[in-house]
Amino acid sequence: MAKKSDSKSLYENLSGELRRGALVLAVLAQLKTEQYGYSLKQALAEKGLEINEGTLYPLLRRLEKQGLLKSDWRVVDAKRPRRYYIISDAGAEILEHLKQDWQFLIGTMDKLL
């Protein structure tokens, strides 16, 4: 039988996996308007999705590398330069497909659970 700590760790791993895919969807949806890293984190948190910095910021770079986001460095409020991200055309197209998949998945899972 699995120990309590093993079971907790297993739950955390599975829960992490479950969230991972949804995070991409949430980030893409949120970046229809331009945001820098910290403002995006805040915006997601305000809507109830708390994301660890070590997960969110590297994710932004990965999505940009995949061509789903665009970014550039700018000084907006006379503070230091910040990197601003926005969804790309390819990202917007994929977001639409992902949204449909998400709706379908929710419907299916509702029936299953």
């Binding site: 890293g37 910040r82 990197r83």
Partner: peptide
């Protein structure tokens, strides 16, 4: 990455 990380940490 280092430049962005610094900016993010400073924001926070």
């Amino acid at each position: 990455i280092q430049r962005e990380l610094r900016s993010l940490i400073q924001d926070e």
